[in-house]
Design a protein around this nucleic acid. Structure first.
Length: 518
DNA sequence: ACTCTAATAT
DNA sequence: TATATTAGAG
C-alpha cells in the first residue's frame, strides 16, 4: 500500500494543506519537503526563521501550519514559535535532533503543538494535519476570551506526552481530542452554569421535600417534583445534602435543650391566643409565578406543632425552636425559612441578595431574575408596601448600633454572640426589642407552611404580612379564616409587589441563643 | 442505577 | 462562601 493510499484512507482533508517548513539545514529541509509532499500537503520552504516570519506576516491566512527546526542561526526556533503564536496563532510543530526533555518542554511551553524528533518519519507527518483541525476548533471557542492561551492551555496538556517519541500519535491525538472535547465540545458553551439556590428555588425544593417526606425525599424524586428546567439531579443532591446537614445541626441543638415540652405548650397557648395557630390549608392559592407542576399542590393538614420555622418540612422536634446556637450562629444560608415571629414585627432579619424567577442569565448562572435587593436601609419605607418589614430592619439595625455589636455590613446577620450581646444590650433592656417576647412567640405559633405559601414562590412572610395589614385596617374580615385566605386576599397588585419585594427578609435566619436571653 | 456521606475542588 | 464533583460504600 502506498503512502498516499494509506493517507487518503484516513481523511481527505489534509490534501493541499498549506505547510510552511523551516529549517536552516538544506538537506533536512529538502527531506522534509519531500515527505510533506508525499503527504499531499502544499509545501512552502525556507531556510531562515526570519524569512519564515516575513512569509507568514505577508500571507496571513495563507498557511495552515508551520513546521520548524529548533536550531537555527538567525532566530531561535522557539522565538519563531512564540511570534507565530502571538501574531497568527497557527499551529507550530517543532523539529529537532535534541531529544532532551528540556528542549521538548521548552517547545511545548512556548506553544508548540507537537515536537518531532529528527529524523522525521513520514508516519509522523501524516498526522500533523490534525493539529490544524484541532487548532481551528480551539480558536473558534477561545477567540473572544484569550489570544495567547496558545502558549498555555495547549502546552500543559501536551507537556507530559511530548517527551516520548510518538509512535502512537494517532491514539494520542484522539486522547487529546477527548480531553479537550469534554470541556469544549460546543465552542459556544461556557462552563456549566451554577445553580443559585434562591428563595424561590429553595421553596420549590422545600415543597417537593415536604411532599415526599423528609426521610423519603431523594434527589431524583425531588428533581421530578420541582420540575425546574436545567436543574440536574446532582444539583438537587448537593442541595439536599446541605439541607440535611443544616437540618441535623438544628435538630441536634434543639434536642439538646431541656424543657421542650413546657415551651411547647407555651407556644401552643400563644398560638391560640393569637388566633393564628389554627390556620388550616383550606384551599390552594392560584399561583402567578409558580412553575410547580409536581404533586405537592395538594391539601395537607399538619398536626399543630409538627411544623416549625424551617419551612414546614422538618421532623417533629418538640416543635421548639432551636436555641443556644453555640458555633457562632452560622446557619447554612437558604435552609431555614425565617420564622414569622409574631406579626407585630420583631423579626430577626438577615439579608440576602437574590430573588425572583428562575432563568438562565447571561452570566451563565441559573439565577433568579429580578432586582438586586436594595441595600438596607436604602429602601424608602414610605414608599414600600413593606414598610413594617423595613421598619423591623431598622429596629434591628438600631438595636445593634446601640450595643456596640460589631456589624460586618449590610448583609451580615447576627450570630449567637451578637445576639447575646443584643439581649443584654440597653436597647433590649429598655424594651426596644423584647427578647423574651421573641422567644415566647416564635414562628411556629402560626401554623404550618402551606402549599400555597410554598408555591407562591415568594416570601410567605410577605404575603402574610400584607394579609395581616389588611386584617388590621379592616379591609379584610377578621374571620378571614385560613392563612390561605389571607394570602388570597391580596390584591393582584399587592401580590406583584410582594413578588417584587420578596426577599426583603432573607432566609438565613437564626434565632440562636434565645435561651440566654431570659 | 441510584443514594448517601464525606471530602475536596472550583 | 455556595455549589459541584468525586470517591467509596451501600
Amino acid at each position: 500500500m502506498t503512502v498516499e493510499q494509506d493517507f487518503e484512507a484516513v481523511d481527505q482533508f489534509p490534501v493541499g494543506m498549506r505547510v510552511l517548513a523551516v529549517d536552516d539545514d538544506q538537506t533536512c529541509l529538502r527531506i522534509l519537503e519531500t515527505l510533506l509532499h508525499r503527504c499531499q500537503y502544499h509545501v512552502t520552504t525556507t531556510d531562515s526563521a526570519q524569512t519564515a516570519l516575513e512569509l507568514l506576516r505577508e500571507n496571513k491566512n495563507k498557511f495552515d501550519l508551520v513546521i520548524s527546526d529548533v536550531d537555527m542561526p538567525d532566530m531561535d526556533g522557539f522565538k519563531l514559535l512564540e511570534l507565530v503564536g502571538l501574531e497568527m496563532d497557527l499551529p507550530v510543530i517543532m523539529l529537532s535532533a535534541h531529544s532532551d526533555p528540556k528542549y521538548v518542554m521548552k517547545g511545548v511551553k512556548h506553544g508548540a503543538c507537537d515536537y518531532l524528533l529528527k529524523p522525521v518519519r513520514i508516519e509522523e507527518l501524516k498526522n500533523i494535519w490534525q493539529h490544524v483541525v484541532r487548532k481551528s476548533k480551539f480558536k473558534k471557542m477561545k477567540s473572544i476570551v484569550i489570544n495567547d492561551d496558545h502558549s498555555q492551555g495547549n502546552s500543559d496538556q501536551n507537556g507530559v506526552k511530548a517527551n516520548r517519541k510518538r509512535k502512537d500519535q494517532f491514539e494520542e491525538v484522539e486522547e487529546e481530542d477527548e480531553e479537550r472535547g469534554n470541556e469544549n465540545d460546543d465552542p459556544t458553551a461556557q462552563k456549566k452554569p451554577r445553580v443559585l439556590w434562591t428563595r424561590e428555588l429553595h421553596n420549590k425544593f422545600l415543597a417537593a421535600v415536604d411532599h415526599l417526606g423528609v426521610e423519603k425525599a431523594q434527589p431524583k424524586k425531588i428533581l421530578e417534583l420541582m420540575n425546574v428546567d436545567k436543574l440536574t439531579r446532582e444539583n438537587v443532591a448537593s442541595h439536599l445534602q446541605k439541607f440535611r446537614s443544616a437540618l441535623k445541626k438544628i435538630t441536634n441543638e434543639a434536642n439538646q435543650q431541656a424543657n421542650m415540652a413546657a415551651i411547647d405548650s407555651h407556644f401552643m397557648q400563644m398560638s391560640a391566643l393569637k388566633g393564628l395557630g389554627g390556620f388550616h390549608n383550606q384551599r390552594q392559592i392560584p399561583l402567578g409565578s409558580g412553575q410547580f407542576h409536581g404533586g405537592a399542590a395538594t391539601m395537607r393538614h399538619y398536626p399543630l406543632g409538627r411544623l416549625n420555622s424551617f419551612g414546614g418540612v422538618f421532623p417533629h422536634v418538640s416543635s421548639s425552636l432551636p436555641r443556644n446556637h453555640n458555633d457562632g450562629g452560622y446557619v447554612l444560608q437558604g435552609m431555614p425559612i425565617p420564622p414569622l415571629d409574631d406579626l407585630n414585627n420583631k423579626a430577626f432579619p438577615s439579608f440576602t441578595s437574590q430573588q425572583s424567577s428562575l432563568m438562565v442569565a447571561p452570566n451563565n448562572q441559573l439565577v433568579l431574575q429580578g432586582h438586586q435587593q436594595s441595600s438596607y436601609p436604602s429602601l424608602n419605607p414610605g414608599l414600600s408596601p413593606h414598610f413594617e418589614i423595613n421598619k423591623r430592619l431598622d429596629d434591628w439595625s438600631n438595636a445593634l448600633l446601640s450595643t456596640n455589636i460589631p456589624q460586618s455590613g449590610v448583609h451580615s446577620k447576627p450570630d449567637a454572640l451578637e445576639w447575646n450581646h443584643f439581649c443584654n444590650s440597653d436597647a433590649a433592656q429598655a424594651g426596644f426589642i423584647d427578647p423574651l417576647q421573641m422567644k415566647q412567640q416564635p414562628a411556629n405559633n402560626l401554623g404550618p407552611m402551606t402549599d400555597a405559601q410554598l408555591l407562591r414562590s415568594s416570601n410567605p412572610i410577605e404575603g402574610l404580612f400584607v394579609g395581616q395589614q389588611k386584617l388590621e385596617n379592616g379591609s379584610m374580615p377578621s374571620n378571614a379564616g385560613s392563612l390561605d385566605d389571607i394570602v388570597n386576599s391580596m390584591t393582584p397588585k399587592e401580590q406583584s409587589q410582594a413578588e417584587l419585594f420578596e426577599g426583603d427578609l432573607g432566609f438565613g435566619w437564626h434565632n440562636s441563643s434565645l435561651r440566654t436571653c431570659i
